[in-house]
């Protein structure tokens, strides 16, 4: 059983070769997570597993057994968009939109990492008690999400604005 966007799914994983990405897209019908490279290089497949951002293409569906998976379809609140999604629209954080579901899930997981005290390569003090979400930090922490359209400035602005006062 995998809880997907809050709903328990018992869809049987008959072939252990099934990646979590193919399971979500083909078996469950959630097309938010995208297949960019299928080899860990682009971040388009990013989803949250138990609140942590991971690459669905390098995760076997079987590994997610008993876990709670959130895709971009599940990040909104009360039937509306998450504030981060609103900010992506506001700041033109995309052009074609192919990388966007991964960017959104990644940024949500990233903000939570900052709140939990996970350092980054550009953090001024690796041992600091807390980290500020400067544009440099955002760029480094989001470096696992590529955008072929080059919408990076909008993406960084949207994330910066959304998490100005910490994660929501």
């Amino acid at each position: 059983m995998i809880v997907i966007n809050g709903t328990p799914h018992d869809t049987e994983i008959t072939d252990p070769r099934r990646s979590l990405l193919d399971h979500l897209r083909e078996d469950v019908g959630l097309h938010g997570p995208k297949k960019g490279c299928d080899q860990g290089g682009c971040g388009a497949c990013t989803v949250l597993v138990d609140g942590r951002r991971v690459l669905a293409c390098l995760t076997l569906a079987a590994q997610a057994e008993g876990r709670s998976v959130t895709t971009v379809e599940g990040v909104g609140r009360d039937g509306g968009l998450d504030p981060l999604q609103e900010a992506f629209i506001e700041h033109d954080g995309f052009q074609c939109g192919y990388c966007t579901p991964g960017q959104v899930c990644s940024a949500i997981g990233m903000a939570d990492e900052v709140a939990r005290g996970v350092p980054s390569r550009v953090s001024p003090e690796i041992g600091a008690a807390s980290f500020d979400l400067s544009p440099d930090e955002i760029r480094e922490r989001m470096s696992g999400n590529l955008c072929r359209c080059g919408a990076y400035n909008g993406i960084v602005a949207a994330i910066e604005e959304t998490y100005l006062d910490g994660p929501r």
Binding site: V54, L55, T59, R121, S143, G144
Partner: peptide
Amino acid sequence: IAEAIVNGASGQIRNT
């Protein structure tokens, strides 16, 4: 140790 880890891969990969 922490420095070496955050110099590798990406946030998503390091989580797994």
